[in-house]
Design a protein around this nucleic acid. Structure first.
Lengths: 208, 208
DNA sequence: GCTCAATAACGAATTATATTCACTTTTGGG
DNA sequence: CCCAAAAGTGAATATAATTCGTTATTGAGC
């Protein structure tokens, strides 16, 4: 054959892109900046990726899946179904949208401005919803399992995920997301037990 | 004084912009197209608006408020609180995101790509949430009014609104949005009455 | 009506970037 | 040790938003 594309170069491009997207967002990051950061010429980037859009897709999938795996690791220490459900909701509506200085928003930037003829696969969305449904299946009591049929509840969460991602960039961290998580827990599991008289902090998730 | 900005010119610019945004989306609509459609030069547009972003803002607010007023007009004919709640949810998650070929998505395009130094006011979001809360206050039974405290439930709806707006452009009409509305109705008002044996159609909202 | 200054309207730059292209350099298999 | 395929390059190209210097219009005061 001949020269082989170097994994190191690809990595360098992705790393530089990630840094810049995080700092300045997708739209305002130029290929010139990415190239400079990766010590590569702009045109050589096109030997590795067909477009700027493809670069962010390459970053997005592993990032999101990693975050969902992290969520799974966080759950076992939590004592009650309520704490676990709350954590799942907060992961999707708060922790992931704010991760990496709002990285999720970059994907929305990219997707919403893409040309109609550029392919877009919703596989990742479907996969993520299924993953969250599987997590919920292990948390919810039997009489609440109808919620996750057809990934309905997960779909709702991921639709709201978009909104929280956009709003994080506009207004900073949401002041109401925890209240919304509690509200959803109440709706799904019934009202929280009255904690009056219970030592402060006992209802907080995490190490007891 | 001297020449006065003509309302007709401003209107023409907005109308042309609306048409083009609807057809091709915000990013792919050029000022050249808007100018041509409005029979105005590109540079004259800048006598009326400071930027492309300002044009879509000028279209967005009246459009959204009009849609929310339309929602209010749709409610009185509906018989039950459940039908009304369902209609509110469907308005925010389905009807408004799909209106005008996904006009809402244009605003997301504009907002998500705006420069950080461009002012953005969340007043409209807050106003809309308050409006929907007020509507819900008239629908929900007293023991469910805690849901709308601090506009929590409305906020959740409007966060999901963003997701549905984005996804409408990517995948067309959601196949699950009605199921999600039913799910939310069930969570908020308790399970739907069993309609087995009831004449078909009796549970559908609208004229009885 | 007439004047004139404010400003609407204009066309031609300017700027900023993603993408393409023709060319040069490198390198792995025979 | 070739050499062709592919990596890598710098210079166009294309597309658009925005700015700028100039011209044309017009409403208020006379």
């Amino acid at each position: 054959m001949a020269q082989i594309k170097k994994e190191a170069v690809r990595k360098a491009i992705l790393e530089s892109a990630r840094r810049h997207f995080m700092q300045r967002g997708y739209s305002r990051t130029t290929l010139a900046q990415i190239a400079k950061g990766a010590k590569v010429t702009i045109s050589n980037i096109y030997n590795y990726f067909n477009s700027k859009l493809e670069i962010i897709y390459a970053l997005y999938e592993p990032w999101l899946l990693e975050r969902l795996e992290k969520l799974e690791r966080e759950l076992p220490p939590l004592a009650t179904p309520r704490q676990k459900l709350r954590q799942v909701i907060l992961a999707v509506l708060r922790d992931i949208p704010t991760d990496q200085n709002g990285f999720a928003n970059n994907v929305l930037q990219a997707i919403s401005t893409r040309d109609a003829d550029e392919a877009y696969s919703r596989d990742l969305l479907l996969k993520s919803e299924a993953l969250v449904s599987a997590i919920l299946a292990r948390i919810l009591p039997g009489d609440r399992l109808w919620l996750i049929e057809d990934d309905r509840f997960s779909h709702l969460l991921f639709m709201a995920f978009d909104g929280f991602a956009v709003n994080y960039k506009l207004n900073g961290p949401s002041r109401r997301v925890e209240a919304i998580a509690d509200l959803m827990c109440d709706l799904v599991l019934g009202p929280a037990p009255d904690l009056t008289g219970v030592p402060v902090g006992a209802e907080i998730e995490g190490i007891t």
